[in-house]
C-alpha cells in the first residue's frame, strides 16, 4: 500500500483532498506519528480513520459499505456461535481438554475483534448489531445437538469457518476500489483459514474420522469433505480442478490420477458468492432477522 499513490488517485477525482485533510492537521499528524509505531497491519485501519475524519463517515463507496456490512453479519454470527459455546447455560457438552477450550476462546476473541474492527470502520454506516437472541444455531432442529454434543458443535464450527473463508474470498474483487480495506479484509480472510484448519484438526482429535486441515474431497469424491451432508452448500464448487484454464490435476506431481485430483482440489480454495453465503447464514438466524 502506498499512501502517496492513494492520495494522488483521490486527487484525480477530488481536487480538494489536500484541503479537506488540511483542517484536520492534528489528525494527520497523529496518524503519521502512529505510523512510526504501529505495524503495517494496522495502517489500513489508521488510513480508514483518517479518511473518515476528512470526509465524514459516509465516504466509503456504497459497494464497500455493503461488503463490510455483509462481512459484519457473518462475524456477528461466528462470534455468538463460539461465545455461547463458552458461556451459554444450556451448553451441556464438556471440552475434552483445556487446550480445546482455549482454542475456542482464541477463535471467539478473533471473531469479536473482527466485529469491533468492522463496526469501527463502518462508523454510522454499520448495520444494526446481531444479538445472540437473533440467532438459531440449532438451525430449526437440523443441528439440534449443537450445544449438547461436542462433535456436532465442531462440525457446525467447521462449516462456519470454511464458509467464512469462502465469503471473504468472494468479496475481494469488490474491494479493489479501496486498497486499505482490501488489505484488512485479506488479513481477516487468512485468520479464518487458520481457524478452519484448527477446527478440522479438533474434529479429527475428537472422533474416529480424519478431516484434513485443508478442504479435500469427501469419501465418495463429492465436494463436501465434512461428512455432514446438511452442509453441502458450504462446499458447493470446492471440487474445482482447473484454475485460469490450467488443469491443476496435471501438474501436482502426484503419483496417480486419484491423488492428483485430490491435490488439485486441495491446493486451491474456492470463493462463494454472496447469495449462497446468505442462504447458509440464514439457516442460523431467527425469522425476521435473516439477511437479504
Amino acid at each position: 500500500m502506498n499512501i502517496v499513490n492513494i492520495l494522488e488517485e483521490i486527487e484525480k477525482v477530488d481536487g480538494e483532498i489536500y484541503e479537506r485533510l488540511n483542517p484536520r492537521r492534528a489528525a494527520m499528524k497523529s496518524f503519521f506519528n502512529i505510523g512510526k509505531k504501529i505495524s503495517l497491519a494496522a495502517m489500513p485501519l489508521a488510513l480508514g480513520s483518517m479518511f473518515q475524519k476528512a470526509y465524514g463517515q459516509t465516504t466509503l463507496p456504497t459497494a464497500v459499505v455493503d461488503v463490510l456490512n455483509f462481512a459484519l453479519s457473518l462475524e456477528y454470527l461466528e462470534y455468538h456461535f463460539y461465545n455461547h459455546a463458552l458461556l451459554g447455560t444450556d451448553v451441556t457438552f464438556t471440552y475434552p481438554t483445556a487446550a480445546a477450550k482455549t482454542a475456542i476462546t482464541t477463535i471467539r476473541d478473533h471473531e469479536k475483534a473482527h466485529v469491533d474492527l468492522l463496526v469501527g470502520a463502518l462508523g454510522s454506516s454499520a448495520r444494526a448489531p446481531i444479538a445472540y437472541a437473533d440467532t438459531d444455531f440449532r438451525a430449526g432442529g437440523t443441528f439440534a445437538t449443537v450445544y449438547t454434543d461436542y462433535n456436532t458443535f465442531l462440525a457446525v464450527a467447521q462449516g462456519f469457518e470454511d464458509t467464512g473463508v469462502r465469503a471473504y474470498k468472494g468479496q475481494a474483487g469488490n474491494l479493489l476500489v479501496s486498497p486499505g480495506v482490501l488489505q484488512t479484509a485479506l488479513q481477516i480472510h487468512s485468520v479464518e483459514a487458520r481457524h478452519a484448519s484448527h477446527i478440522r484438526q479438533m474434529r479429527t482429535a475428537a472422533g474416529t474420522a480424519v478431516y484434513k486441515p485443508w478442504v479435500s474431497l469427501g469419501a465418495s469424491g463429492q465436494a463436501n469433505d465434512s461428512g455432514v451432508p446438511q452442509v453441502d452448500a458450504v462446499y458447493a464448487g470446492e471440487d474445482l480442478t482447473v484454475q485460469a484454464n490450467v488443469n491443476i490435476a496435471n501438474i501436482t506431481g502426484a503419483p496417480n490420477a486419484t491423488a492428483a485430483k485430490l491435490a488439485a482440489v486441495e491446493s486451491f480454495d474456492e470463493p462463494l458468492d454472496r447469495a449462497s453465503v446468505i442462504t447458509i447464514a440464514n439457516l442460523f438466524l431467527q425469522p425476521g432477522k435473516k439477511l437479504s
Binding site: H189, A193, P213, A244, D269
Partner: peptide
Amino acid sequence: KSATYLLLAGKIVSVEARHAAY
C-alpha cells in the same frame, strides 16, 4: 489490479494459511 488475479491469489493464500496453522 486485476480482480481475476486477486481471486487466484486469494484461492492460494487461504491454503497456505491452513498449512501454516497445521
